[in-house]
Write a protein that binds this DNA or RNA. Structure first.
Length: 649
RNA sequence: GCCGGAGUAGCUCAGGGGUAGAGCGCAUCCUUGGUAAGGAUGAGGUCACGAGUUCAAUUCUCGUCUUUGGCUCCA
């Protein structure tokens, strides 16, 4: 007999060799119907795998991440089984799960290419096979047998994978006529998979290395119920409506022109207004936090970037240098602002009493991004960072770092970004060539970030090897409408550039010391931030950012004089205004699709003129009653104030 | 950059070897006077660009550019 500890810490006795499925059955038949996988002492197993010793277990259903993963992993196998049946001779790479669904990397025989049109027929065949309810059977195999088996199939992809595995740890999973190398776990049988959608097809380098050959990656998602698939598809459609590229076009926020060049956004009037509002918000915030605003040129002598090390690292993959016609000078479009700010720091001797120096600039930078990587406003070649560099003493570092985290939080709160991930990016110790500076400085910098995050009580994930080449960083990631993660705010600690630029301050001991540098951009870039903001608000911005706030609607032309008076007043109050000119030309006619996004409409007629008032309607809320234009301005200001309350102190 | 998909009116898209289509928008006029609206009429396109096949190409083929889903990259 063995003892099984359930999640509620109750202990049950079973015969050795009991399976997860049997345990579920013993708890309730309904649970047995829904359960998908089991964790045994923390390791996720198949339900049908016998348990031979005491263990604590967890049963996973669809609602659990582990349950979904098991389900999708088996779906990936089902897809592989189907593809092998339809295209014999196909070679299979890896077939893992992703956030939503699964994929399998494959290589079809004879250079055949799969296209989106083929997906429907694969889906259909997958469902046919699923209906056979084939058991998915786990078996252990020796390394030599595994190699023999896949040699027979001539599948060098699997052979490569097997060759890296340790003998004695290799398992196979079989269903129907299909057997795959796999660690598992899997569903008991394929019949649980009721609804399948193969979503897309893409190229992917074998093992993620661009030197390797490219395989075909087939993405899909599957569900235990048809209805869930339908809901999922509706959700995707809804998300597409929030795409910032679509809304940006509809609302005339930004545009691209082939003639200007790819990845170079044009900010249209309303988008520029939105952006300027965000900029002035941050400028005020930074002023309150002791930052100085500076302005530097868009180009810089190439030697600046040689000093910083950026040229050596990225020069070949950058926009190439600009040369003067006769003096032999070489300039770069600035790909970052740090070197310019370092030069400002060096303008005069600094005392320890002067530190920290906080230098902020909305600096437009230009980076050559591979053409295939460009994406709306989230990945562009010319963008404006809300950059700042803090030069401080080592003893001020942690405190300064924490203050920057505060600024990021204020921004996220002001815009209701709740679902962010804070990611600490450290260097990869196995790859020292990727980084500049001493190991000692890296240790100090990494420790400062980790400690500051701990002291702030920040929930973080740590990624090894994601650091910038000059220092570790803390990044704030936010998801777009379709769940793709984008890095917004970033805070980086840097001991290296101060050394390379020979920055100094005179300490209280009258000796020269090196300051520490913090690079930070809480928005990340105006472009990417606005993109994510659009997708989060679906174009319904907070009132303090809304490009248009009011439509003024005179009911008859004889009231236009009064309407003009109100208009003038509103403009003086910094209320952005659009006017319907149905009756007389006092403004441009408002379009229907604009109308939907304008928060307030003011109607002016006989009664209003008589009372020297306006009738107010709010989008989505209806009639707000009659008030004077002064009262209306007060109402709007109050609302803006509420949205921004408590942010600056 | 690599592997797929796409490029037709301002927008969203249908079509298809032989006068180029719809809806929305736009323009003009009418209607509507407490209203996030209705109707009529009209304007608009070298069917991304270049080459090839063909009596004939927007349609088929190839190339280029742009865009898009991924991969790689992201100071």
């Amino acid at each position: 007999m063995i003892h099984i500890t359930l999640p509620d810490n109750s202990v049950k006795e079973f015969e050795a060799g009991i399976t997860g499925f049997d345990i579920a059955q013993s708890i309730s038949p309904r649970l047995a119907k829904e359960v998908l996988s089991i964790s045994v002492n923390g390791e996720v197993w198949d339900l049908s795998r016998p348990i031979n010793e005491d263990a604590s277990i967890n049963l996973y259903k669809w609602e659990d991440r582990q349950g979904k993963e098991t389900f999708w992993h088996s779906s990936a196998h089902l897809m592989a089984e189907t593809i092998e049946a339809m295209y014999p001779g196909t070679k299979f790479g890896i077939g893992p799960t992703v956030d939503t669904g699964f994929y399998y990397d494959i290589e079809l025989p004879d250079g055949k290419v799969l296209s989106e049109k083929d997906l429907a027929s694969i889906e259909k065949k997958m469902l046919e096979l699923a209906r056979q309810k084939n058991d998915i059977v786990r078996s252990e195999i020796s390394k030599s047998d595994a190699l023999k088996m896949f040699e027979a199939k001539n599948d060098e992809l699997k052979l490569e994978l097997i060759s890296e595995l340790e003998d004695g740890t290799i398992t196979l999973y079989n269903q129907g006529n299909f057997t795959d190398l796999c660690r598992g776990p899997h569903l008991p049988n394929t019949g649980l998979i009721k609804a399948i959608k193969l979503t897309s097809i893409a190229g992917a380098y074998w093992r993620g290395d661009e030197k390797n050959k490219m395989l075909t990656r087939v993405y899909g998602v599957s569900f235990p119920k048809q209805k869930m698939l339908e809901e999922y598809l509706v959700m995707i459609e809804e998300a597409k409506k929030r795409d910032h590229r679509k809304i940006g076009k509809e609302m005339e926020l930004f545009a691209f022109s082939e003639n200007v060049g790819q990845g170079l956004p044009l900010w249209l009037a309303k988008g520029a207004q939105l952006r300027m509002e965000l900029e002035s918000f941050l400028k005020r915030l930074q002023k309150a936090h002791g930052y100085d605003q500076v302005i530097t040129p868009h180009i810089g002598d190439v030697k600046l970037y040689k000093t910083s090390g950026h040229y050596q690292k990225y020069g070949a993959d950058s926009f190439q240098t600009i040369k003067t016609p006769s003096e032999g000078e070489e300039y770069m479009l600035k790909p970052m602002n740090c070197p310019h700010h370092c030069e400002i720091y060096k303008i005069k001797p600094r005392s320890y009493k002067d530190l920290p120096v906080r230098m902020a600039e909305f600096g437009t930078v230009y980076r050559y991004e591979q053409s295939g990587e460009l994406h709306g406003l989230t990945r562009v070649r010319g963008f404006t960072q809300d950059d700042a560099h803090i030069f401080c003493r080592p003893d001020q570092l942690k405190d300064e770092f924490k203050k920057v985290i505060d600024i990021v939080f204020i921004i996220f709160k002001a815009l209701s970004f709740e679902n962010y991930t804070a990611q600490i990016s450290l260097r990869d110790p196995k790859n020292p060539d990727k980084y500049i500076g001493s190991a000692e400085n890296w240790d100090k910098a990494e420790r400062a970030i980790i400690e500051a995050c701990e002291e702030k009580g920040l929930n973080t994930v740590t990624e090894i090897g994601e650091a910038a080449f000059y220092g570790p960083k803390l990044d704030f990631m936010i998801k777009d409408a379709l769940g793709r993660s984008w890095q917004l705010g970033t805070i980086q600690v840097d001991y290296n550039l101060p050394e390379r630029f020979d920055l100094e301050y005179i300490g209280s001991d009258d000796n020269r010391h090196k300051p520490v540098m913090i690079h930070r951009a809480p928005f990340g870039s105006m472009e990417r931030f606005v993109a994510v903001l659009i997708e989060h608000t679906a174009g319904k911005f907070p009132l303090w950012l809304t490009p248009e706030q009011v439509v003024l609607l005179p009911i008859s032309e004889k009231y236009n004089d009064y309407a003009k008076k109100v208009l003038k007043f509103l403009n003086n109050c910094d209320i952005r205004t659009v006017i319907d000119d149905r009756n007389e030309k006092i403004g441009r006619k408002i379009r229907d699709n604009e109308l939907k996004r304008i928060p307030y409409m003011l109607i002016i007629g006989e009664k209003e003129v008589e009372k020297e008032a306006v009738s107010v309607r709010k989008q989505g809320e209806g009639d707000k009653g009659t008030m004077t234009s002064e009262e209306f301005v007060e109402l709007v200001n109050l609302e803006v104030k509420n949205q921004l309350s408590g942010l600056y102190n």
